[in-house]
Structure formats: structure tokens, C-alpha cells
Simulated assay, not measured.
Amino acid sequence: MRSDSHPDFGTGYGDGKQMSSLSIVHKNREESETDIVPRKTYFVGLKELYIEPGYNIRPIDPAHVEYLRDLMMDGEELPPLAVKVTDKGLKIVDGHHRYLAALAANEAGHEIARLECKDAKGTEADLTALQITSTQNKALSPIDRANGYLRMYNQGKTEAEIAKKVKRSVEDVRHHLQLLECGDELIGMVQAGEVAATTAVSMTREFGTKAGAVATEKLAEARASGKKKLTKAAAIPQFNAGKARRLVELMAAFDFTDDGYTAPDDVYLEAMGILAEYREKHGKSELAGSGESA
């Protein structure tokens, strides 16, 4: 029995026999009532392809190249490369590791003369978004993703437009752009996997230009205790919530007037002790004004 929701590929040609390929089904689409649209790809000689230095937002990973080389040598099919026609030839937009893997396979004695390619269409921002979102690529590191967002931002895209193109939230875009403002020391730690990207951003907000030095010191302490990574809790000591509540209770006992304040000695001393502990861990608050004290 024929289903009303599926075309009968056999009816009208081949006397009900199963079709041999999608191309035949598409060729006879009027009879088969199928909805198949072809997308052209081309098999391109390796010598016509080239990599533009610095264009790929992903640093080349030799281990990933070897992995793809082995897949090619085993006869596995890989997705087509995305390329852009230039006056130099076909610039690779997406598929740098696959291209290098093909070269490596040839060096190993396994001939690969051509790679399947398709046109990379759109603006430069679209092509950057393609590199970021392609599911065929090696996962992006936080720094690589941040550099991709920055490239799109420098191409004139707003944070909201970038988020839409890469299918992420505006907050995600904003966070990664802030990551690039953390300084070389912290960025290097993030790239090495020693500090999480969120921790690096939080430390920069907390310590400003001293964040890198603080991170280096805290990471050394973490390693001394047998840990390999600096956590946010270790990087930014949190003030005890109980003591914060106690300080509020103590301040409520202060009597504030235009001439200053008064408080029982024991209340004053306990409050000042909590404030001194806070300053020792976090430094003097930037909210403190420069006016005269009471």
C-alpha cells in the first residue's frame, strides 16, 4: 500500500522497481513527486587549493591532521571543503585540516589527487561565522572563539548580529570579547587550560591590571597543593556570608548624624575587625570617596 506522505519512487518509471540512485529520482522528479534539490560540489586538484596564513581562526593541530589522514587512507568519506575563488586560486575557508591531511596522505604514499569542494558564499563575516559554527571542525578553544567574534566585530557586526550568525547568546559573545581584554598572561593560562575563561574574566574585573600577577601567584599555590588548575574559588577569595550579615547587624547599632557617628565600644571594635579582614583579602573598595572622614 502506498503511503500518502511518501513518494512512490517506482511508479511511472522502472515498473515499480527500486531506484538506483538519488540522481535518477531527481531526474524523474515530476513523475515521482519527490522533493529533492541537488547542491553542487566539485572535485578539485590539490594544487589548485591554498591556505591563506592567519585566515583560519583555528590553529592547526598536527594530531588532528594525522587523525584525518588515517581516515582518508582507510577510505572514509569526509565532508567537502568550503572554498572561495580568488586570483591566487581556491582559498580554503573551511577544511584546513582536511587539506593538510590529504597532503600528508600523499607523502605517506597514499595518492589523493582531488578533494571534494563547494562554494563558500556570503560576506567575510558570513565566512568567519562558517568557520566558527562548522560541526565538521575540531572544537574551538575559548580564545579561538573569542578571536573569531573579534574578527566579525571588526568587520562591522554588532554583538547582537554576531550572536545571531553563530547561534549563541549575546552574553556569550560579550563574555568572549571581554576574555581578550584579560592580558597576555591570563590569556596564555586560559589557552593552556590552567584557568577557565569565566575565571579569567572574573579575575580581571576583580583585580584589574594586576589580574595576571595574582593568577600566577594563585596558580603556584594551587599546584603546591597538588592541583593542576586554578579555580574561581581559589582565585577570588569569597568573603564569609555570615560575617557580611553580622557587619550589617553591627552597623544598624551605629547612630549616624551630620557630625559623624557613635557606637558602643564593643560594637565598634567588632565592626572594624570585620572591615579589616575584608580589606586584607580584597583591598580597599574603589567606592571609598576622597572626602574627609568623620
Rank of each mutant, 00 (worst) to 15 (best):
A196F: 10
T204L: 02
L46M: 12
L81P: 02
Q238R: 02
D74I: 07
S3N: 09
S141M: 07
D61Q: 12
L287V: 11
K27G: 02
L22W: 05
F256E: 01
I143T: 05
K165N: 09
V195F: 14
K118L: 05
K218I: 14
G54E: 05
V44L: 12
A129L: 06
G193M: 12
E249R: 11
L177R: 05
A220S: 10
E159V: 09
S141W: 05
M152Y: 06
A213F: 15
R114C: 15
L179Y: 02
E116N: 05
Q136S: 10
E76A: 12
A253I: 01
C117V: 02
L130V: 06
T231N: 08
E124Q: 14
N106M: 01
G208N: 12
S5F: 13
K167L: 00
A220T: 07
A104W: 12
P62W: 10
A253S: 05
K27Y: 05
A104P: 05
F239P: 04
L90R: 00
T257V: 03
A63P: 02
K121N: 12
L68D: 10
K157P: 06
E107F: 07
M189E: 11
N154T: 08
D266I: 05
M152W: 01
K121V: 15
Q155Y: 07
E159F: 10
E66K: 06
L71Y: 10
K47S: 10
Q136H: 11
G289T: 15
